[in-house]
Amino acid sequence: MLGYNLVDDEELEILLNDVANKYGYDFTEYSKASIKRRVNRLCALDKFTSFAELRYRITNDENYFGRFVEEITVNVTEMFRDRHFYKTLREQIIPQLGVNSYIKIWLAGCSTGEEAYSLSILLHEANLAHKAIIYATDINPSVLETAKHGVYPIGLMRNYSENYINSGGTTDFSTYYTANYDHVRFIGKLRERMIFATHNLVSDSSFNEFQLILCRNVLIYFDKNLQEKVFKLFDSSLESLGYLALGSKETIKFSELENRYQQIEKEKIWRKVT
């Protein structure tokens, strides 16, 4: 049922301030429409009957706060989502990265790891994996556990295999995982060059310089102000001539970066040119 909102705008602000003060997780610059929907969804899932009850639980139960973070951040992702995007990565970006003696990639907001494995497959097929490192980060520690294990429901493989083929993949996709009952595990060599770590785009700073930063469908959950801050963080973490890749409906247009970056065809990939 589409219930009325238990938590209104004012209460949401109170709650997000509580959370920032008590736990140091600052969601106050997240997109309000989205986070309000997520919080109200959580209220319905966990059967809260008043805002006061929700507020008390979150501020007094640290374990429950873990669940709160898991549920209000969106962790939906898939392998090789957007075939045009992955085709461009495969055919243009990855070969270009290959001219370097090493390749450092930051996957910001990696969620349960599907994009990290997609990237790793591209690097292996280009014979570049040995000199590449993928830093895959997320705010949410529990999704990183899934990403590290690389275990996914077998039912998803049909779709992922289609996505892989549509984006230019030619290998038998099933050679990249071993199946076990209703789950698959992606093979170990795909994980060899991955580093998983928690990183909060709101509060943590730059930790390295990269030639490619992917952050797809994360910025849609941030307001304009926070988006601008994150763009600056990416800019300071990107080598000259490095690439920034965003989700299919996200843009650096109207941001400070716009004039110093060049868009790759019609894709949501920009190259830092100055």
Partner: peptide, 19 residues
């Protein structure tokens, strides 16, 4: 857009959501 939920902010701008 296909494959995103479409939300509206209080300032009458769109927000997309891939939940």
């Amino acid at each position: 857009p296909a494959d995103y939920h479409l939300l509206i902010e209080n300032d009458h701008t769109f927000s997309l959501d891939y939940s």
